[in-house]
Simulated scan of single mutants.
Amino acid sequence: IVGAEQVFYKALLEATVYAHVPIEPAPSDRIRFIQFIRPDNGQTVLPFFSEREQAEVAAAGRVAIMAMAGRRLFELTRGATLMLNPNRDQLTFYPPEVGALLEGRPLGAFTKETLGANEQVGACPPSVSTDALVLVLRGLYEREPSVRAGYLVEVHRGSDNSDVFLLLTLVVTKGNDERMVQLTSLELSSVPPPLALPVTMTCVLPDEPLPELCHCGIQFYGT
């Protein structure tokens, strides 16, 4: 799956994509793109589309459409948060991810899973070295004021406790969990050497109770 994702990102850079621009002509030395504010978290994003038909439906005749290679769009809009096919796929690219794609670095990959409310698991402080992991994550979260605290705990799961992973719990302000999951995944892909255990991540709000599992591990970050 991870390999398929990287193939998709490479193809996206080479494909023709479509973005909205104002109908009014822009100065000759610049391009202005249309952005919108996400209703779910208040973030400003720049929409773009893999098909002209999608772009036309979203434009509804109110804005113009510009076509260009995906790489060119990413280069012109560095610093912005982009969303591919906002009315269908809603795939978000944050500025650090855009930079990684343009530099040929892989993006982080993650899948979603659910830990049952009544599922019994074992928990303890990490038994493997987490120095490199903590160094990378602290560097990221010190730049992200939405992150209030970070915890690491080693979890043993399954009937014989053979499913072992690190649970990373972040205390994150409302509306920023998606962003921090993606940026954390990107940072995890750069941790040297490869992590001894896989990492599972969860986010909680500052006013929510801290999961009991966190008390079995370590707090590696706090503001």
Rank of each mutant, 00 (worst) to 15 (best):
D163Q: 13
S28Q: 15
V191F: 01
V136T: 04
A67C: 08
S190P: 03
I1F: 15
P106Q: 09
T16P: 06
G122V: 09
A55Q: 07
R88M: 05
T130A: 10
S190R: 13
E24D: 14
P194R: 10
P22D: 10
F110Y: 13
T114W: 11
L168R: 00
C124Y: 11
A196W: 11
A15N: 08
F33Y: 14
P192C: 02
A64N: 12
E24I: 13
S28P: 12
P39T: 11
L101Q: 01
E208H: 12
A100W: 04
I1A: 15
L183Q: 11
P22E: 09
E178V: 13
L140M: 04
P211A: 04
P22G: 09
S146E: 11
S185Q: 09
A26H: 08
I23T: 15
A64P: 06
A132L: 06
L167T: 02
L166Q: 00
E51T: 11
R30I: 07
P193L: 04
L167R: 05
F33T: 07
D89N: 10
P25I: 03
R32C: 10
V191Q: 01
L213I: 14
L76Y: 08
Y18T: 08
L107K: 02
E5T: 13
T202C: 11
R52S: 06
N176D: 11
P209Q: 02
P25K: 04
G175N: 09
V45S: 05
R38I: 06
R143D: 12
D163W: 12
D29L: 05
P86E: 07
V63E: 09
V204F: 08
G3T: 14
F165E: 03
E97Q: 10
L135N: 13
L140E: 02
M180G: 07
V57L: 10
F110R: 07
A60K: 12
G158Y: 03
K10E: 10
L213P: 01
L91G: 11
A69G: 10
F110M: 05
R179S: 02
V153G: 03
V147N: 07
G122H: 04
Q219I: 03
T77I: 01
Y18F: 12
N87T: 14
N161E: 15
P86T: 07
A58Y: 08
L76G: 07
K10F: 04
K174R: 15
P95G: 06
V164I: 14
P86M: 06
E144V: 03
G217E: 01
I31R: 10
D29P: 02
E113D: 12
L140Q: 06
V45L: 12
L91T: 15
D163N: 14
T44V: 14
V98N: 02
P209D: 08
I31Y: 09
A55R: 04
P27L: 01
A11M: 13
L101H: 04
P194K: 08
P211N: 08
T77F: 02
C124E: 15
R71K: 11
L168E: 02
D29V: 03
V134Y: 02
G150T: 04
Y18E: 04
R138W: 07
Q90A: 08
A196M: 10
L170V: 01
E5S: 13
R78I: 06
A4Q: 15
A80Y: 11
